[in-house]
Design a protein around this nucleic acid. Structure first.
Ligand SMILES: [Zn+2]
Ligand SMILES: [Zn+2]
Ligand SMILES: [Zn+2]
Ligand SMILES: [Zn+2]
Lengths: 143, 143
DNA sequence: AAACACCTTGTAGCAACTTCAAGGTCAAGC
DNA sequence: GCTTGACCTTGAAGTTGCTACAAGGTGTTT
């Protein structure tokens, strides 16, 4: 299997595959005589796993940790559960932040009901007056 | 006012101030005899405005547009309202995406109720089996 | 032999900063 | 007068997860 085939089967691009190899998310492929990367079923499984994790918005670091946990033969899955719980918290936290943001934005939007001169626009006034309390540090990797 | 004072009054760092200047979000400062940047009340107002926009998760481009609209003397605020509405949609969309993600994650979490060998863990099985339908393009700048 | 699709490497770009390196300026303390 | 420390200057590189080249090698078809 060449890199393009692998990529197609996993629903990503060849560049992504090479990038994951560089990142250590995918083990280095064997090389054919012409120096082309050569893949088997194992690689496809692994790549699909990684892509599924990414579809769930896990970071490369989270995926790395998950892979390490999986590859510790005989280990139990407590670490896996913890990692997933932590990630779910990242999502919960970001949802809460965005809901709060949405409230602020709706309130701001209320301040202008009809078109008027920009000098009198309640939205612009609101943006000028807001006191964005010192930037809240980000506690989650979800933007 | 030196750059450090300005930054403190706006709740950001001097690096951020210099960065905004380079980005055109903040007009270039006057220079004192020693080549230090020198700021007045106008700059502080502007920087606070930009920071408030960022606190609402607007992009630099959105802020640029907003500033352009504001500085068109005599214009009405229709464009401002449109821009804010569009940004509110960005937030709404991301909230919807994250709520869906949360559902998927909760379902996955359900698949492992107690610790067991990693080979039998329902979470890892779930991650292997998932068929992440071709990556959904992002339609919003919110991560 | 030319066209075309595929592969290789390495580099640069995106957003919104942060961090670092190497150096210039200025007031205070000994 | 000389050092310490806090500030300022510039420019380059790192962050995250890719994407998009550029410049070239390979392989099959016509
Ligand atoms: Zn996470
Ligand atoms: Zn208005
Ligand atoms: Zn927006
Ligand atoms: Zn489990």
């Amino acid at each position: 299997m060449k890199i393009g085939d692998l990529a197609r089967h996993a629903g990503c691009t060849t560049e992504t595959v090479r990038f994951y190899e560089k990142e250590g998310l995918l083990p280095a492929a064997d090389r054919a005589a012409n120096n082309y990367r050569s893949y088997g079923a194992r690689h496809l499984e692994r790549l699909r796993f990684v892509r599924n994790c990414r579809a769930l918005d896990m970071t490369h670091e989270e995926i790395h940790q998950l892979l390490a946990l999986m590859e510790t033969a005989g280990a139990d899955c407590g670490g896996v559960n913890e990692l997933l719980d932590a990630h779910i918290q990242h999502v919960d936290l970001r949802i809460a932040e965005l809901l709060q943001l949405k409230q602020q934005l709706d309130a701001l939007r209320q301040r202008c009901q009809q078109q008027q001169g920009v000098d009198a626009c309640g939205i612009l006034l609101g943006l000028a007056e807001m006191e964005a309390s010192a930037r809240p540090e980000r506690h989650t990797h979800l933007g």
